[in-house]
């Protein structure tokens, strides 16, 4: 078990959103305020870690033939629990995320990690994987949220800071580009982030290659 590598995978080299391109639906739909991004990110983080742990623990019990059905039951169970808890204790979050919390059931990150990682590894490794991938997802969501909220609504942290949760106004009303709040803005922001990610990855790969050539 290599915790450092697992975290590096989750945050950078195997980032669920920017590299594996999983969970796009929620990434596009809810990333309009920082509050939404953090709420969604933490929900996925919790669900992913729990389902990873349970699936890793049951990996020797669940037969191959029914594994997907078993994973879905486990995932749906955790999602429903989190959904109920959010509705009961953070109703504002449930109002602004709406149907996207129940839809975490079909978020490919969860099933993807269950199939690709948790079902083949020990419980502690699966737990670390859930946390690392969940943090990777949350960070990307938060970055997209900050960009879209700032340029689209002109505020920072709506739902968390400011008068009546209106956020801190940075760009005067009437000037922000409304389009970034619309779905189109989600695609645009995500596309730019993926391009930036690839560019930095290629650049560091180039640099490493040149260094190894120079060393020879």
């Amino acid at each position: 078990m290599n915790i450092g590598k697992q975290f590096k995978d989750g945050l950078v080299s195997q980032n669920p959103v920017l590299v594996q391109l999983l969970g796009m639906c929620s990434t596009m739909a809810i990333t309009t305020t920082l509050f939404n991004g953090i709420g969604m990110g933490i929900s996925v983080l919790v669900i992913l870690t729990c389902s990873n742990v349970v699936i890793a623990a049951l990996r020797k019990v669940i037969p191959q033939k029914i594994r997907i059905a078993a994973y879905v039951v486990v995932i749906a169970g955790f999602v429903t629990m989190v959904d109920l808890l959010i509705q009961a204790f953070v109703p504002e979050l449930s109002k602004s995320l709406g149907v996207f919390i129940p839809l975490i059931v079909v978020n490919c990150i969860i099933l993807g990690r269950a199939e690709a990682f948790a079902s083949k590894n020990t419980v502690p490794a699966a737990a670390i994987d859930g946390i690392a991938q969940g943090i990777g997802y949350t960070i990307v969501l938060v970055v997209i949220c900050i960009i879209r909220e700032l340029l689209g609504s002109g505020t920072f942290g709506a739902g968390i800071f400011g008068v009546n949760g209106g956020g801190i106004r940075i760009i005067a009303e009437g000037y922000p580009a409304l389009f970034l709040i619309l779905p189109f803005g989600g695609f645009l922001t995500l596309g730019c982030l993926i391009a930036f990610m690839q560019w930095t990855a290629n650049r560091s790969a180039d640099k490493a290659r040149k260094e190894s050539e120079a060393a020879k």
Partner: peptide, 9 residues
């Protein structure tokens, strides 16, 4: 189309 981000203007 993008500039319709400022529909009022």
């Amino acid at each position: 189309a993008f500039l319709f981000s400022w529909p009022v203007l």
